[in-house]
Design a binder for these strands. Structure first.
Length: 327
DNA sequence: CGCCTTTGACCTGCGC
DNA sequence: GCGCAGGTCAAAGGCG
């Protein structure tokens, strides 16, 4: 299982985006790509100073180094979460006992019925209803968009019985159910801001930690955020912004785990990566991952492991050879 | 009075 | 075919 996950990091739809202290902003990779995409001589086009070739090469070397570090940490996270993710069914090749996709199977006919009322400009819904199950259809139809699923956790007061996760959107509760694997009831919400908004939210306390509220967002908002406030949890729309250092989402590009280690100002909130519920030590693992000591040790350990791996060194040599100019 | 929440009933898919 | 479980509906009640 671990091997399957590790193998999936590089070549399966599963991808890991890691931000490791490169920048206070959440997407340092964007800046990196901007650097990499442009030839050395063309960089800094918008700057008043023109960059020399030496500076460009140094920057490129740094970027390469960071990429390598990023890749190492990717593997570490993959190992840390490997078992959990596999159980989650995020690996598209596996056939999990309980699919993560919220729209698989039994929702089909009901979704198609709802489509009759809301098949307007909403790009998330397609006429005919079946297209909603983009998890299975989008692979063949590039025009379809998969339903985006993101999962966030928020720590609350254990005595607080309300299943409310404030994210700035307006939600209408339409159901509550006690599920089998969790004694806490699960609340079902619809986005009440726009009638045609397809986004749904499921909120349930963690079975392991009653002070942890797990909110699962399904779909994307087809309207602007009504009252964007800083520090609130990210909803499905946009998905990228928010205060959580770690999130899992499933979208058109496949399952994505984002761990942002640059956000160490606040307490690290634990994302439940397991379904069924994770072992209790997962939270501890997440805390460790966020600590500088752990990161340092991690890098050293991974560097050691990678350099002692003949496959890695071989692949690295091959990659370097490819980069060398032909003689 | 209108909106929202609650909650039991119903629907649907899946596994046996 | 039947039972189970998740998801949704809709009537009833509460609240401002």
């Amino acid at each position: 299982m671990d091997a399957a996950w590790r193998g999936g990091v590089g070549c399966s739809p599963v991808c890991l985006d890691l931000c490791v202290g490169l920048s206070p902003v959440r997407e340092p990779s964007a800046a990196r790509h901007e650097l990499l995409d442009r030839p050395a001589g063309c960089r800094g086009g918008g700057d008043s100073k023109s960059m020399t070739n030496d500076e460009a090469m140094i920057l490129e070397a740094k970027v390469t180094q960071m990429s390598e570090e990023n890749r190492r940490l990717t593997e570490v996270i993959a190992r840390l979460y490997g078992g959990q993710i596999a159980r989650l069914g995020l690996d598209g090749s596996a056939s999990p006992p309980r699919p993560v996709s919220p729209l698989s199977g039994k929702k089909r006919s009901r979704e198609s019925m709802e489509t009759a009322n809301s098949c307007d400009a909403n790009s998330n819904r397609h006429q005919g209803g079946d297209a909603d199950h983009a998890e299975s259809f989008a692979a063949d139809d590039g025009t379809c968009r998969r339903i985006k699923v993101s999962r966030v956790c928020r720590r609350i007061d254990p005595s607080d019985t309300s299943l409310v996760v404030k994210d700035g959107y307006q939600w209408r509760k339409y159901g509550q159910k006690v599920t089998r694997d969790n004694p806490s009831p699960r609340a079902y919400f619809r986005c009440a801001f726009a009638p045609s908004c397809p986004v749904k939210k499921k909120v349930q306390r963690s079975a392991e930690d009653s002070s942890l509220l797990v909110a699962t967002y399904e779909g994307e908002h087809n309207h602007p955020h009504p009252s964007p406030r800083a520090g609130e949890l990210p909803a499905a729309a946009g998905g990228a912004g928010g205060s959580l250092p770690c999130s899992i989402s499933i979208n058109s590009s496949g399952p994505t785990i984002t761990l942002d280690l640059t956000k160490n100002g606040g307490a690290v909130q634990v994302i439940e990566a397991a379904h069924p519920p994770p072992p209790p030590d997962l939270k501890e693992v997440c805390r460790e991952v966020a600590s500088p000591e752990f990161r340092t040790a991690l890098v050293e350990q991974m560097a050691s492991a990678l350099t002692s791996d003949p496959k890695f060194t071989g692949a690295l040599a091959a990659a370097i050879l490819q980069k060398l100019p032909e003689l």
